[in-house]
Computed example of a mutant assay.
Amino acid sequence: MTTMAIRLRGIPDTEASIGWAGGHSVVVDRPEGKAGGMGLGFNGGQLLGLAIGGCFCNDLYYVAHEMGIALTHVAVDVRVTFDGDPLRATDATVEIAVESADKEARLDELIRKAKETSTVSNSIARGIPVSVASRL
């Protein structure tokens, strides 16, 4: 089992937050003019799409290495649809384009295996409990 710790803290003099895990960070905010947002960073929906797509990109490279395929091009586009009240993600679509200099590379198999092993998209598709605790 692997556990990752991610921390977020408010940025002084803004209503945005900075989040980090290890040595990597990202700014989270709402669009400018929405509920105090200043447009300083990604909103949660964008981060969800980035998590889905970023994980899929990594999985494509993991599987390519396992299969001995050198990729020359990777493009992943994610579209997340939100609906309801409260608003929630109702659909995510991932479009993938990969290329290899090896014309015999089994790219369809590569994409299939990456889809089967993609941690984030498989977690979302199966649903995960989210518990919230207050430290007041």
Rank of each mutant, 00 (worst) to 15 (best):
V28T: 15
L110H: 06
V80G: 00
L60M: 05
R88A: 09
T72L: 09
H65G: 10
L60V: 07
S100Y: 02
L48V: 08
V130S: 03
T119E: 05
T81M: 11
G49S: 11
F82V: 15
M67F: 01
D102V: 08
R88C: 12
A133Q: 13
A89D: 06
D77Q: 04
E15V: 01
A21L: 04
I18M: 04
V94F: 03
T3C: 02
G53S: 02
A114Q: 01
P129D: 11
I6W: 11
A125K: 08
A75N: 15
V76R: 00
T93G: 12
M4S: 15
A35M: 09
D59M: 10
D108H: 12
K34T: 15
N58Y: 04
D83C: 13
C55E: 00
R135H: 07
D29P: 04
A92V: 00
D77F: 03
G41F: 01
R88L: 08
V27I: 05
D29C: 08
V78N: 03
G84K: 15
L48F: 06
H24P: 08
T93Y: 13
N122M: 10
Y61D: 12
K113A: 12
L60H: 02
A5Q: 14
E104P: 11
A89I: 03
D13N: 10
R112I: 13
W20N: 09
F56C: 05
M38S: 04
L110M: 06
T81P: 07
G49C: 01
V28C: 08
I6H: 02
K115S: 14
R126E: 07
G39L: 04
I11S: 05
L60Y: 03
T2W: 05
I69M: 07
D108F: 13
G23H: 09
A35F: 13
L50G: 09
A5Y: 13
K34I: 12
G68H: 00
V26N: 08
K103C: 13
V80F: 02
E116T: 12
T119Y: 12
A114C: 11
M4L: 15
E109P: 00
A16Y: 02
N58Q: 13
I111T: 03
D85A: 15
A97Y: 12
N43K: 05
G37I: 05
D83Y: 02
G36M: 07
I11H: 08
T72E: 07
K115E: 14
I52D: 08
